[in-house]
Nucleic acid binder design. Sequence first.
DNA 1: CGTAGATAGGAAAGGGCTTTCCTGCTACGT
DNA 2: ACGTAGCAGGAAAGCCCTTTCCTATCTACG
Lengths: 351, 351
Amino acid sequence: MTTLADVARQAGVSPATVSRIVSGSTKSVSDELRERVLRAVEELRYVPNAHAQLLARSDRSTVGVVVHDVSDPYFAEITRGLQRIATEQGKLVIICNSYRDPDRELAYVDLLRAQQAEAIILAGSGYLDPAFTKSLGAQLAAYTATGGRVSVIGRHDLAGDAVLPANEEGGYLIASAVFAAGHREVGVIAAPAELTTTADRMSGLRRAAKEYRLAIPDERVRYASFDRDGGAQAAAELLDAVPGLTALIAMNDSMATGALAVLRERGVPVPLAVSVVGFDDMPIAQDLTPTLTTVRLPLVEIGARALALALDDSRGAPRHEVAAAELVLRESLGPPRPQDSPNLSTWTDMS
Amino acid sequence: MTTLADVARQAGVSPATVSRIVSGSTKSVSDELRERVLRAVEELRYVPNAHAQLLARSDRSTVGVVVHDVSDPYFAEITRGLQRIATEQGKLVIICNSYRDPDRELAYVDLLRAQQAEAIILAGSGYLDPAFTKSLGAQLAAYTATGGRVSVIGRHDLAGDAVLPANEEGGYLIASAVFAAGHREVGVIAAPAELTTTADRMSGLRRAAKEYRLAIPDERVRYASFDRDGGAQAAAELLDAVPGLTALIAMNDSMATGALAVLRERGVPVPLAVSVVGFDDMPIAQDLTPTLTTVRLPLVEIGARALALALDDSRGAPRHEVAAAELVLRESLGPPRPQDSPNLSTWTDMS
DNA sequence: CGTAGATAGGAAAGGGCTTTCCTGCTACGT
DNA sequence: ACGTAGCAGGAAAGCCCTTTCCTATCTACG
């Protein structure tokens, strides 16, 4: 490993001079020395040791983001927005996949503290688990106490700035659309119950139901993993357990994709026999057949705002921003088939 | 920021002792001191400064991967495999998005060098650009000269270990399937020509064409950006420019998705009027309508192998592993419609 | 011509941690 | 009882850089 000292020796100057030239200090250096140093840097292919630099100066320049999994499009979008801001401000982003494991999440917060991260962004749902929330809170407190900045996406009970996707509102919008289309026999393909996102979206659904003087009984809600296969599984269970459903509300587009797959397999036409709606408006939503009615969350923007808030110097009371949800109507939501449709037997028998 | 010295003071021991306990040195420490130190660590919520640690010890423990964009499913899969190995071996992964910008790619290699990364994985296509390849090569040479490990996914002309997706073979397989189905009027939706991936896949197509005594004339090849919208654009252009096409070969599944969207918009039935095939077998391929015939690359495995090779100590001649491609037949490939089909006018008029 | 003021460059002190080396014990063998 | 081995713990050097402080040189002005 070539070091700054090597460069200094090669150029016949002091390490201080090399440092000033390489790291662009304000102090002026004669053109002759500058040239000699740069030549040495070139010859030795010198790259300063970032860790030594971070130790010596005290300015942080990396930010960390803890997501469920970057390969999940939801988080990929958030991360993209966040990266944009990071690049603009010359920050390095460390991406940590927690795979929704609370312990791993705690471990990553420590890791980011150890890395002297300037800011930590916690993206993704919180957990309805007071013990966990408490220990995470304590850890974050220790971090912010030493100047660290925290901002969270979509959880409510932690210190720090927050960007809140309008999950409740989105749930309300999508359910209202489904009820407005005339559906009364509705199944819900829900994400794991311990996620705050699930709780919020469900509560939006319930609010809409209430306005229509309907209820969403437990047997019409199936909790499953927050992905395509979970959606497929929950859809299959619901169809088997509750004959006569005319619409399925999935808690995100991946789950909706799984539901569509099951319906296609069973030969159930969508939306003719059963309507399906999703949540998040992932890019694929418009490429499915039928195209998916869903709720759009401005994910890229959410990621960008979360980091912007964290990097904004003006301390003070934690700020909360709500990112509005927007209904996106596409083909997969139609009117319910008549309850006594002669087709009913045709396709339920195929299951 | 609480430091190791703070902990030592609080526990009434020397910094050396704290270090030994906190970082799990082999040297034994009495239970009493150990307990006092751990209590102090707990009280002060001490986390060691990772940069100072890296400076002091000389073992690296982070690896870097340069991809086009993690939110692209292709790279998301590769990254997933890579992360698995990294986690197993206790390495931190730094993900860098180059957005296919050669300059940014060079900059990231420097950044990873500066971060003292133990290994650098370059994922994704190379560029058919000798000048760039040369300067990247020089940079990597400087890195490996100081003990850095490099492995590349899918490019041929760089030092270091390599995992090579069977792009040529995959191109051959998919084109053979298309020709075998009877298609003769085939359009190619190609990725940018300067990518080695494009070159390799195209050459596979050409080999298959040759076996069928066919050629792939330039006017039936459209180059576009390597994503859904690029695919849509290229598909639209091809359909307009070359009437009578019975099959479209897209260079990846995203482009195929775009092509399907255009065909759906124009009311062209797939595969009845036009067949469409993709490449990579992304997860969505089986959820599109029709489900997509494509070529599977074991991307997760490729990512895992690339990192495993890089971390494998046994130096020596660079190793090259080929990751086999596998044809996945699904609905989107069918026999060609008869050339004089009465339907022809019906749907070409709709464009 | 002498001195103040500016300026280029170097010496050296950290920054937080690890680790070698050393000291002062205890335990054991003869 | 003495010598040696073994062990727990501390002192201090070193990892690579930045930056303050200082010196030496030069310019300019009275």
